[in-house]
Simulated assay, not measured.
Amino acid sequence: MKLSDYAKKAGISYRTAWRWWKQGNLTGHQLPSGTIIITSEAIDDNLKPDLIACIYARVDSAQNKDNLDRQAERLIRRSKRKTEKIIAELKSHRQ
C-alpha cells in the first residue's frame, strides 16, 4: 500500500505518515521512483487505535441549539478515532 493510502486509512496526514516512515515506525520499502510502499503486515500493527478525537461543536444562538446536537453527532460519526471528549458551546451575543 502506498504511503499516501496508508495515511488516509490511518486517518492521519501524509506528513505524519512520512515522519513515522523516517523514524522507522512503519515497515515497508521505497521504490527507485521514490514511492514508499508500506507492507500489509505493518498496516494493522502500526495504526494507532489509542489515538482519540476531541469533538468541538458551536452555534451562535439559543435558537440553533438543535443544530448544536446534530452538529456534534455528525462530527462523532465522521471521526475515525475513539471519541473521548465532546465540547459543545452555545454562544450568545449580548449587547
Score class of each variant (00 low, 15 high):
K2D: 14
D5S: 11
D5C: 05
Y6K: 09
Y6M: 08
A7F: 05
K9S: 14
A10V: 04
I12M: 11
Y14A: 08
A17P: 04
A17C: 09
W20E: 03
W20F: 11
W20P: 01
W21L: 03
K22V: 12
L26W: 02
L26V: 06
T27Y: 01
L31G: 02
L31P: 05
P32G: 07
P32Q: 06
S33P: 04
G34M: 08
G34F: 12
T35G: 00
I36R: 12
E41G: 02
E41A: 06
E41M: 00
D50K: 13
D50Y: 15
A53M: 09
A53D: 15
C54V: 15
C54Q: 09
Y56A: 07
A57K: 05
V59N: 04
S61C: 10
A62P: 06
Q63F: 07
K65S: 11
K65N: 06
D66I: 02
N67Q: 13
N67C: 10
N67P: 00
L68E: 08
D69M: 13
E73N: 12
E73R: 15
E73D: 13
R74L: 13
R74A: 15
R74Q: 15
L75T: 05
L75V: 04
I76P: 11
S79F: 09
K80H: 11
R81Y: 12
K82H: 07
E84N: 01
K85M: 04
K85T: 10
I86K: 06
I87R: 03
A88C: 10
A88H: 00
L90K: 03
L90V: 07
H93E: 13
R94L: 09
Q95T: 13
Q95H: 10
Q95C: 10
